[in-house]
Nucleic acid binder design. Structure first.
Lengths: 227, 227
DNA sequence: TTTTATCTTAAACGAACGTTTGACAAACAT
DNA sequence: ATGTTTGTCAAACGTTCGTTTAAGATAAAA
């Protein structure tokens, strides 16, 4: 959410305001929930006038939906799409270690897109929060965000796991994997406190190595050479 | 949250109202977040007058804190406490399969306390939500709820896992395990939709078998005989 | 019965909410 | 130069929020 158009000075000003509101809104909504953020604090935090939000997004709900849309737009930059997974699987060999390396690649992409790069962090937290109490936008989010991502994961599980009973197992196990990543984002305060860290900064490699190893094991793959 | 005193008719009336408010509040706060629930809708949903909430709990914040306290009070009924884990580990043998059976027991207790019995479901969702944006009650929750539970888990990991690099690995892996259970609660709507289920009802055994097997693998233990 | 304590209730309070309005400045198009 | 579009702003709108008050109802204690 950092690029901006260069059409004209006046347009650029408005676009910059739009981006500022999307970024500020994502962080505040993720931290405090939709109802926990007032338009006045949001405007103050973004350094704009109260009415500017309604001007650009039609209102509070409009801004919220725009933030969610922003995430679904860059979905494939975070989660490797199903075709990419299939391609990678086709290239790889059939030995357990070779299958495991595909899993490493997938988890590496996930960790890089969500833990290392933090551009879309708050957006993903917002979306994952919507799961607890599905409202009318749930169907849209399910179709445009969750379903494709979890499809990638169940393909990965089905084609790599050493122990996979049936389709239910593949789908549920795919969900278990994404659960781990989501929760790494949401409980980063608790995890850092327990590990004596200030933040994940400087510990990405440690986390990545542990998570990759554990996911390998979860899929019944060799845990020794996670990379 | 179902037992009640029998001191007198009048006292019993008030206590019943208290319990109704705790139950109703837990569900509403879990689904909509603290700021997403108004005292008027809460009172209407519980079938009591608006002022009754303030009478019993001092206000909205008081009810919220009472709900969280309710969960920390029954913490050990959900998460096996550290001493129970150590005792079980001491009884068990040293073979991988015997270690794995201790893990099965732990996961069975967790699934039973949170997925099968649903008394404390909403409370746990509320607590896990507080993780995203720690406030002043975070320290209290960390000390009274999370720290003991995660201590149990890191002991379990340290004493059973076949691949455990160091203390960081044990703590983080313990967190990965609880992440899976928490997310099973929070995203039950999405999971059921993906699996074509109405709810978890009638599928507890399926979930339990898959989760136990996957956790065994995650810890580098034999995945064949999960029970 | 009278008194007291416990619990519920309707009504009102000020504060904060999301939204709308109309005026204003700056950069466009003609 | 002139009118239009675009973006920002302060002020006010009606609504809903959490809280408080004072009165009423019921069971226990005197």
């Amino acid at each position: 959410m950092t690029e901006r158009g260069r059409k004209s000075l006046k347009r650029a000003q408005g676009e910059e305001t739009r981006i500022t509101l999307l970024d500020t809104g994502a962080e505040l909504f993720a931290k405090n929930g939709y109802n926990g953020v007032s338009m006045r604090t949001l405007a103050a935090e973004a350094g704009v006038n109260l009415a500017t939000i309604s001007y650009h997004f039609g209102g509070k709900a409009g801004l919220y939906e725009a933030i969610i849309q922003e995430i679904t737009n860059v979905r494939d930059q975070i989660f490797p799409p199903t075709e990419a997974v299939r391609a990678r699987l086709a290239e790889a060999g059939e030995t357990p270690e070779e299958r495991a390396e595909v899993v490493d690649w997938f988890m590496g992409a996930l960790i890089d897109g969500l833990l290392v790069r933090t551009d879309y962090l708050w957006g993903v937290v917002i979306i994952s929060r919507e799961l607890v109490h599905p409202t009318e936008i749930f169907s849209k989010m399910e179709a445009e965000f969750f379903s494709p991502n979890l499809e990638s994961l169940s393909v990965l599980v089905r084609e790599t796991a050493a122990h996979c009973r049936d389709e239910t197992d593949a789908i549920l196990t795919g969900h278990l994997i994404v659960s781990i990543i989501i929760q790494l984002l949401e409980s980063h305060a608790l995890i850092c406190k327990r590990l004596g860290w200030d933040s994940y900064q400087g510990h990405h490699k440690t986390i990545e190595a542990i998570v990759k190893t554990r996911i390998r094991g979860l899929l019944g793959l060799p845990m020794e050479n996670a990379q």
